[in-house]
Design a protein around this nucleic acid. Structure first.
Length: 263
DNA sequence: AGGCAGTTCCTTCCACAAGC
DNA sequence: GCTTGTGGAAGGAACTGCCT
C-alpha cells in the first residue's frame, strides 16, 4: 500500500511529518491521513513526494524504490530485503574499511561545519573518488555512486553509517540549515581515524578536496556535480562510470594537463 | 428545465493526548 | 523538549428531492 510506503520512506530519511506536510502545503494532520491511507494524494503531491524521496515518479506510484541494488560486503552476511530484479554489487571488506576511515577523517575534520550535512558529504566523497581517478588513474575508495536526482549517491553509505552508529563511533544529529532539514554526523571524540590504510598521495588528495570544496553549500556542490561528465552521461539510478572522468570539460576537470587552476 | 433547501460525504485544521 | 496520532468541529462540493 502506498500509504505505508510513504511512511517507510519518510522514516528512512529521518523526515518529520511536519516537514513533508509543509512541503506539500498541507497541514500536518492532513498529511497524517495520507500516511494512514485515509486520504488520497493529488498528482502534484505525489510528484512532490517522489521528488523529495528521490524516487522516480513511476517507481513512487508503484510503491517501490527504483534502485534495486543489493549491497553485499564480503565476509558479512547481512542480507538486504528482497525486491524483484536488482543489481548485485559486492564490496570487498578492505574497500569498506577504507571508506570507513576516510569518512571518519572527513567528519573529524569538517563535520562540524554548519554546511556539512549528508548531502554535502555525498558530494565530497564523490569528488574525492572521481577526481582522484582522473588525476592518478587509480581508485582511492573506489565506491560505487548512483545517479540520483540530487546528484551522485554513494552506495554503501547508509549501511556503513548504520554500523558506525551502532558501534558508537558516530552520532546522527537532525538539525536545520536555514529552513532545510539537515542530517549531521558527529564523530565520537574518542575515535581516531586510522589513516595507515591511506598512502601519502591519497591523504594529500583528500585534504586538497576538503580545502577547496568543504565550504560550499549542498546546492553549490549539486550544481557542480550536475555539470560533471560522469554524472551527465550516467543513466538515472545507475552507477556512474569512472572512465568518463577523462571526458570532463574544463569546468570540473582537476587533472593538470596544461595549466588550468583557479583560486 | 431551473432554482433552492436539505443531506451526505470528504477534507481540512485545531487541540489535545501519547510517545520518545 | 519535539514528534506522532486521533476526535471533533467547520467548511465546501456534490447529490437529492421538491417546488415553480
Amino acid at each position: 500500500m502506498l500509504a505505508k510506503f510513504i511512511q517507510e520512506q519518510r522514516k528512512k530519511r529521518n523526515l518529520s511529518q511536519e516537514f513533508l506536510a509543509s512541503t506539500l502545503k498541507i497541514s500536518r494532520p492532513t498529511y497524517m491521513q495520507i500516511e494512514q491511507g485515509e486520504r488520497d494524494l493529488t498528482i502534484t503531491e505525489a510528484k512532490k513526494l517522489a521528488e523529495v524521496f528521490d524516487i522516480s515518479f513511476e517507481g513512487f506510484l508503484e510503491g517501490r524504490e527504483d534502485t534495486k541494488t543489493i549491497v553485499k560486503i564480503e565476509g558479512k552476511k547481512k542480507q538486504k530485503r528482497e525486491a524483484g530484479e536488482e543489481i548485485r554489487i559486492s564490496i570487498p571488506q578492505q574497500k569498506a574499511d577504507k571508506f570507513r576511515q576516510v569518512l571518519l577523517y572527513i567528519l573529524k575534520k569538517v563535520g562540524g561545519k554548519p554546511n556539512i550535512g549528508m548531502t554535502v558529504l555525498y558530494k565530497l566523497l564523490y569528488f574525492i573518488d572521481f577526481d582522484y581517478y582522473e588525476k592518478y588513474e587509480d581508485q582511492l575508495m573506489g565506491l560505487v555512486y548512483l545517479k540520483n536526482h540530487r546528484g551522485p549517491t554513494p552506495l554503501l553509505f547508509e549501511d556503513l553509517i548504520g554500523d558506525m552508529v551502532k558501534n558508537g563511533e558516530v552520532e546522527i544529529i537532525k538539525s536545520k540549515f536555514y529552513q532545510y532539514p539537515q542530517t549531521k554526523y558527529l564523530v565520537n571524540p574518542e575515535v581516531e581515524p586510522d589513516l595507515s590504510i591511506l598512502n601519502g598521495k591519497e591523504q594529500e588528495h583528500i585534504d586538497w578536496e576538503l580545502q577547496r570544496l568543504s565550504d560550499l553549500t549542498a546546492t553549490q556542490l549539486s550544481n557542480l556535480s550536475h555539470k560533471d561528465v560522469p554524472w551527465i552521461s550516467a543513466e538515472n539510478s545507475k552507477p556512474l562510470d569512472y572512465e568518463s572522468v577523462f571526458y570532463r570539460t574544463s569546468e570540473t576537470s582537476v587533472r593538470e594537463y596544461g595549466n588550468t587552476d583557479e583560486d
